[in-house]
């Protein structure tokens, strides 16, 4: 059966509306960088970017290009390559809104979205300035406790779009994610799930129990586009490592607006990417 789920990179990028709430995975879990460059070429604006629960290069490029209105994350960093230059600059200059969180609060909010529940209780956080700055979170007294037991509630996140990169899909639109189960939760919680993959195979992933256990069924997948090396210059678990030299270059260039613009021209909007 031919399936309209399989599409190309530009069509995938066209499915992210301006102003969408977009959830993305951490750098180690399959970041759709080729699709992010396609999004930037189409000039996306006003995104509410939710890192599940952290982000790096992807968030920094989107922020640097002026595509982001709000970032929600437990951390934005380039890891061993340093801070995220465009993110830090935009924050200092008040060009983006920031919702600081802690990793499990974001996971819990997404799980609430996955379950169709309105919110999730979560331990910790009491007495932190994270909580103090989150007017969308609540503290209640645990109604099941004998004595007083304050507990934080986080509202469900049901993102407009989940966007990530995975190793493999099949022609039906099933996507193999192995043990990277946060991608499954993202797909369950989101209204639309857009995935790039290294390769689309003919065999149905659900036919073999060994791959079925690590597969997101096509029910949850809106579109799949093939993009070999689609996480580059970040890594894809089990497939390739990160491109350290490129990331060092990025961090150095992104320290200034001019440097970032030059990077964008060379690697995103310019000729080098036209082949994608």
């Amino acid at each position: 059966m031919g399936n309209s789920t399989i599409t190309d990179l530009d069509d995938l990028a066209a499915r992210v509306p301006d102003g969408a709430q977009v959830v993305v995975p951490p750098d180690y879990s399959g970041v759709a960088m080729a699709a992010t460059r396609a999004l930037l070429r189409r000039g996306v604006r006003g995104l509410h970017l939710v890192a599940m629960p952290t982000s790096g290069l992807q968030a920094d490029m989107l922020v640097g290009a002026g595509a982001v209105a709000m970032v929600e994350a437990a951390s934005i960093t380039m890891g061993e390559f340093g801070g995220a230059p465009c993110f830090v600059r935009a924050l200092r200059e008040g060009r983006i809104a920031m919702r600081d969180a802690t990793c499990p609060a974001l996971h819990s909010a997404l799980q609430a979205g996955q379950k169709g529940a309105p919110f999730m209780p979560i331990r910790g956080l009491l007495g932190s300035d994270i909580l103090a700055h989150r007017d969308d979170w609540r503290v209640i007294d645990n109604p099941f406790a004998d004595g007083s037991d304050p507990v934080v509630l986080v509202p469900a996140i049901r993102p407009d779009v989940a966007l990530f990169h995975a190793p493999l899909a099949d022609r039906e639109g099933n996507v193999w994610i192995g043990v990277r189960r946060e991608l499954l939760v993202m797909a369950h919680a989101a209204h639309a799930t857009l995935v790039t993959v290294e390769r689309v195979q003919d065999e149905n992933l659900l036919d073999d129990p060994r791959t079925a256990a690590g597969t997101i069924p096509a029910l949850y997948v809106s579109a799949v586009a093939e993009a070999a090396q689609g996480a580059w210059p970040l890594q894809l678990w089990g497939h390739y490592g990160l491109d350290g030299e490129h990331l060092r270059t990025y961090v150095a260039q992104a320290r200034s607006d001019e440097g970032f613009a030059a990077y964008m021209a060379e690697h995103v909007t310019g000729k080098a990417e036209a082949a994608e």
Partner: peptide, 9 residues
């Protein structure tokens, strides 16, 4: 700095 990660939990 990068952010609070999982510390608050």
């Amino acid at each position: 700095w990068p952010g609070s990660f999982g510390s608050a939990f």
